[in-house]
């Protein structure tokens, strides 16, 4: 297989396991490129990519932009707060305006779940989802699984726990879909108020006990906790969260095997992770960031091959 089975990367849900393998193999090659003295390749010369961010982002936007530039694509950036867009121009109008300037690929982050599916019914450009509300964040899940694969090899039968706010997390959802497709076993751990009631139906078991979760897993993927963004209080305080569900050195020392610590960033030091864990040898957080660029280069490269006028 040398081509993806899909024109867009809207969700891990829509990928086949072979697609994921192809993305990983392509990322291997680009990772090698990234370690050369000259990190730029001409693969996407004359391809124009629009990064449309309807929601704040720093690291994902930079990672995509860097991946695009390393591939020699022409890049335009658009960012808007979701509220101003909602009140004024519709998503379709905004995107069509930008596409009228002959854009080949759209990378979009949007606060509404399913926004990319909606868009894909109305435009011709290939679409990459850089996060749609609480639905999916496919490139994050791909880079997470890719980073795990680097450390653990084949993920079949490997055990991964996702800690934290599962209810509001697109990263958790995409990770669950991705890891299941690769044959890994997934559990989620956090306060019950932050775990969707039916999460077990989509391939993740629930564990409320942090000690048991850590003892079980090969990898702990710890998500960012944001008390300030929640409109309802799902837990009373960061202090209590940290004491009950945060990962610290003491907890890790109780586990009798090495486990890898991951985090999609940005870290709330002292809340979901203590600094001594985040900066420990077990932590592969910065490798995730590095792999993010390679994974995004792979996705962009493979989707550019599927451009509508190419197919």
């Amino acid at each position: 297989m040398s081509q993806l089975s899909t024109r867009h990367l809207i969700g891990i849900k829509f990928l086949k396991p072979e697609d994921i393998q192809l993305i990983f193999e392509t990322a291997d090659k680009f990772k090698e490129v990234l370690n050369r003295p000259i990190k730029k390749v001409p693969s996407l010369r004359d391809v124009t990519i629009a990064n449309l961010f309807f929601e704040n982002s720093t690291r994902t936007r930079i990672s995509f932009e860097l991946a695009e530039k390393r591939l020699s694509a022409d890049v335009v950036n658009f960012s808007a707060s979701s509220s101003s867009v909602k009140k004024g121009e519709t998503l379709l109008d905004t995107v069509n305006n930008i596409l009228a300037m002959k854009v080949d690929l759209v990378v979009m982050r949007h606060p509404a779940p399913g926004a990319h599916i909606f868009l894909s019914k109305h435009i011709d450009a290939n679409i990459i989802n850089a996060g749609d509300g609480t639905h999916e964040h496919p490139t994050q899940a791909l880079l997470d699984a890719y980073s795990m694969r680097e450390k653990l090899g084949d993920l079949r039968g490997k055990k991964i726990v996702i800690f934290g706010d599962i209810l509001h997390s697109r990263v958790a959802l995409s990770n669950i879909f991705c890891l299941n497709k690769l044959g890994a076993k997934v559990k989620v751990c956090g306060p019950p108020t932050l775990i969707p009631k039916y999460i077990h139906r989509i391939g993740a078991e629930v564990e409320y006990d942090v000690n048991k979760a850590l003892a079980w897993c090969d990898v702990a993927n710890v998500l960012r906790i944001q008390l300030e963004r929640q409109d309802i209080k799902y837990f009373p305080s960061l202090r209590e969260y940290s004491r009950s569900f945060g990962i610290n050195k003491k907890l890790l020392d109780r586990v009798d095997k090495p486990i890898y610590i991951m985090h999609p960033g940005p870290i709330n030091r002292g809340v979901e992770l203590t600094s001594d864990v985040a900066d420990s040898k077990q932590s592969i957080i910065l490798q995730q960031v590095e792999n993010g660029v390679a994974i995004r280069m792979a996705v962009l490269y493979l989707l550019a091959e599927k451009r509508s006028h190419n197919s």
Partner: peptide, 21 residues
């Protein structure tokens, strides 16, 4: 119900849409 917009179940979980139990 909060600001749920679809039935809470497998589908809402998989779509990341807030559920109405």
């Amino acid at each position: 119900a909060g600001d749920g917009m679809v039935h809470e179940g497998t589908m809402s979980t998989s779509l990341g849409l807030k559920g109405l139990p």
